[in-house]
């Protein structure tokens, strides 16, 4: 690891001004579970680390009925995974969180960090997109919000501007009768990077799919929505034929690569299998869920 400067910012303004001072050569440190590994392996050599964990308010994790969920930039994956409201209202996110890395990693890693790293296989991204998450940004020019769906621009690439940091994620309160699921495919049961991840958020009213989100991870340069697959089900009464058709459409939407983790062909097949299973499970959950 190369030497670097280290700051513990106590305000967003201070953090942003440090980013400005180092002009692109500073990195934000929250969980550090990706950053420090990459620094040790020589993949990244930032001149400065700005620790944001001491900035008041960034550790906020709260759920307000009618408003939804707020996940601050310093909130760990483990906190999200264990939060009763997340388990109750954001089951897909809870499933993704509890499959990320190991317990040790989740006690350090943050959900916002998982997003900012912009890995195509990030576990929390598909369910967050499926749930309609918004990303709150703070920069020298003030604050702005971006839908998470539009946040990623490529592997490791986001719309985040230089000297701008993510302060929190906001998720709307889910509509009643919504079933959420995240299924992950990997070679083993823990400490695994998804070879395919599929999130589904599906709202069922009187046996009609009123809102369907199918989001695929690890099969394109960014997490992607399978819009044509969603369209197969939206406004219709789901049956096994439609669910199978949607799964095929999802497979067609995927653009995976061949790498050491999996062949592209196998990934495509798994998109179909996992989408089918996720839709079936989401339908079951949507039907089980009583209106509040």
């Amino acid at each position: 690891m190369r030497p670097f400067d280290y700051y513990e910012a106590t305000s967003l303004e201070e953090a942003v001004s440090l980013l400005g001072r180092y002009d692109g050569r500073a990195s934000i440190l929250a969980g550090g579970t990706d950053l420090l590994v990459e620094m040790k392996e020589g993949l990244r050599a930032p001149a400065c680390l700005v620790n944001i964990k001491r900035i008041p308010g960034l550790d906020e994790l709260s759920y307000t009925p009618g408003e939804g969920l707020r996940i601050g930039a310093a909130v760990t994956v483990r906190q999200v995974e264990r939060h009763p409201a997340v388990r109750q209202h954001y089951a897909g996110l809870a499933q993704a969180a509890c499959q990320l890395g190991s317990v040790q990693v989740r006690n350090r890693a943050t959900v916002v960090g998982n997003i900012c790293r912009a890995s195509p296989s990030a576990d929390t991204a598909p369910p967050l997109i499926a749930d309609g998450a918004l990303v709150c940004l703070f920069g020298a020019d003030g604050t702005r919000t971006v839908p998470l769906e539009e946040f990623f621009t490529g592997p490791g690439q986001t719309v985040l501007r230089a000297h701008e940091i993510v302060t929190e994620l906001r998720l709307p309160d889910p509509i009643p009768h919504t079933g959420q699921v995240y299924l992950k495919h990997g070679r083993r049961l823990a400490m695994e990077l998804a070879t395919v991840g599929v999130a589904v958020s599906l709202t069922l009213q009187d046996e009609i799919c009123t809102r369907v989100r199918i989001v695929l991870g690890a099969v394109a340069p960014t997490p992607i929505r399978a819009s044509e697959a969603e369209a197969v089900l939206e406004g219709r009464s789901p049956d096994s034929t439609l669910v199978s058709m949607a799964a095929v459409k999802a497979q067609e939407a995927s653009r995976p690569i061949d790498d050491v983790r999996s062949s592209a062909a196998y990934r495509r097949q798994m998109v179909r299998v996992l989408t089918l299973r996720a839709l079936e499970q989401a339908l079951t959950r949507a039907r089980q869920e009583d209106s509040p």
Binding site: R187, R188, L189, A190, M191, E192, L193, V260, R261
Partner: peptide, 16 residues
């Protein structure tokens, strides 16, 4: 080697 590290060289773990 394409997987010279524990990220992509997959040993079974306790849950497996």
């Amino acid at each position: 080697p394409l997987n010279a590290g524990f990220v992509d060289y997959k040993m079974p773990l306790a849950p497996d």
